[in-house]
Simulated scan of single mutants.
Amino acid sequence: MSLALKLALAPLLAAQALRTRRRAPVLPEAAGPRRGSVGHGPLLRLLIVGDSSGAGVGVRTQDEALAGHLTRTLAHALPRQVQWQLVARSGITTAQALALLQRERPDRADVAVAVLGVNDVIDQVPSQRAVLQRAALADWLLAHTGVRHVVFAPLPPMHQFPLLPQPLRWIIGSDARRHDAALARWAATRRDVSHVPIAMSLAADAMASDGFHPGEPVYRTCGEALARHIADQLIPLETRT
C-alpha cells in the first residue's frame, strides 16, 4: 500500500477509528488462575506472554482461552507435565510487554510463547521497529528466564475483524500482514526464535461479542497449533516418554 494513499485516507481513518473505539464494548480479561500445572511426566516449564489475546479477552475463563488450549494440548501431545505461567495485559504493545516482564520477573521456564502485535499495528509502530522490539523481548527472555526458545504467534488476519469498517479494516489488515511478514523474516534468521503461521477464519461466530477479540474457536485453533509446533519441532524426540 502506498504511503500517499494512506495519507489521503488519514482523516477518514481517524474518524472511523474514533467511532469504533466509542461503540466497541469493553470486555474483561478471562477469569481464572494465571499459573498452573497439567499432565504427567517429565516437567516442561512454559511461559506465555501476551496482550489481550494472551489474557483471554473474549472468553469467560483461562480454560477456554489460549493458555488453557495450549497447555492441555501440549501436555497430551508430549506427554509431559506442563507447568505454566501467564504474564499478559490487555492493550499492551511489544515494548510494553517487555516492561511488564521486567517488573513482574516471571518464573524460570524452558519455552516461552509470545502473543503480541495487534497493538503495535493499532498504535502505528513501524514494522521494522516492532521487529527490533520483538528481538529485545526475546533476548531478555533468553537471558533472564532461562528459556531455550521463544515462539511467536502470528498476527491475526485483521482484515477479517468484523468490528472494523471499511476502509479502516483494509488498511489495518494490510499493516498487520506487513508486520507479520517482517516478524517471519526475522525469526527465520535465528535458531532460538520461531514464528508459527496459523490458518484461521475470523468469521463473526468465531469471534467474541465485540467483533474484535477472539472467541473460543479461535483460541482453540491457535492454542493447538502452537502446542503442535512446540511438541513436533522444539522438544527432542529422545526426551518424550
Results as ranks from 00 to 15, higher is better:
residue 41 G to P: 04
residue 42 P to E: 14
residue 43 L to M: 14
residue 43 L to Y: 11
residue 43 L to K: 13
residue 44 L to T: 10
residue 48 I to C: 11
residue 48 I to N: 04
residue 49 V to T: 07
residue 49 V to F: 05
residue 50 G to C: 07
residue 51 D to R: 08
residue 51 D to E: 14
residue 51 D to H: 10
residue 51 D to N: 12
residue 52 S to K: 03
residue 53 S to G: 14
residue 54 G to M: 02
residue 54 G to P: 01
residue 55 A to H: 01
residue 55 A to M: 05
residue 56 G to P: 02
residue 56 G to R: 02
residue 57 V to E: 03
residue 58 G to W: 01
residue 59 V to I: 07
residue 60 R to H: 13
residue 61 T to H: 11
residue 63 D to V: 13
residue 64 E to T: 04
residue 64 E to W: 01
residue 64 E to A: 15
residue 65 A to E: 00
residue 65 A to R: 00
residue 66 L to D: 01
residue 66 L to I: 08
residue 67 A to T: 12
residue 68 G to K: 02
residue 68 G to M: 04
residue 69 H to P: 07
residue 70 L to D: 00
residue 70 L to K: 02
residue 70 L to S: 01
residue 71 T to H: 08
residue 71 T to L: 06
residue 72 R to G: 04
residue 72 R to M: 08
residue 72 R to V: 12
residue 73 T to H: 13
residue 73 T to N: 10
residue 73 T to K: 12
residue 74 L to N: 01
residue 74 L to A: 04
residue 74 L to E: 03
residue 75 A to D: 05
residue 77 A to E: 14
residue 77 A to N: 06
residue 78 L to G: 05
residue 79 P to G: 09
residue 80 R to H: 14
residue 80 R to G: 05
residue 80 R to T: 09
residue 80 R to E: 08
residue 81 Q to A: 15
residue 81 Q to L: 13
residue 81 Q to F: 06
residue 81 Q to H: 14
residue 82 V to Y: 05
residue 83 Q to Y: 05
residue 83 Q to A: 14
residue 84 W to V: 05
residue 84 W to F: 11
residue 86 L to V: 12
residue 86 L to K: 00
residue 86 L to P: 00
residue 87 V to W: 00
residue 87 V to M: 05
residue 89 R to D: 07
residue 89 R to P: 03
residue 90 S to Q: 14
residue 93 T to K: 06
residue 93 T to D: 08
residue 93 T to V: 09
residue 93 T to G: 10
residue 95 A to W: 02
residue 95 A to L: 11
residue 96 Q to C: 09
residue 96 Q to M: 12
residue 96 Q to R: 13
residue 96 Q to K: 11
residue 96 Q to H: 10
residue 97 A to R: 03
residue 98 L to R: 07
residue 98 L to E: 04
residue 98 L to I: 10
residue 99 A to I: 07
residue 99 A to M: 12
residue 101 L to Q: 08
residue 101 L to K: 09
residue 102 Q to C: 11
residue 102 Q to K: 15
residue 102 Q to L: 11
residue 103 R to N: 13
residue 103 R to I: 07
residue 103 R to V: 13
residue 104 E to Y: 07
residue 104 E to M: 12
residue 104 E to P: 08
residue 104 E to N: 11
residue 104 E to R: 15
residue 104 E to A: 15
residue 105 R to C: 15
residue 105 R to L: 15
residue 105 R to S: 15
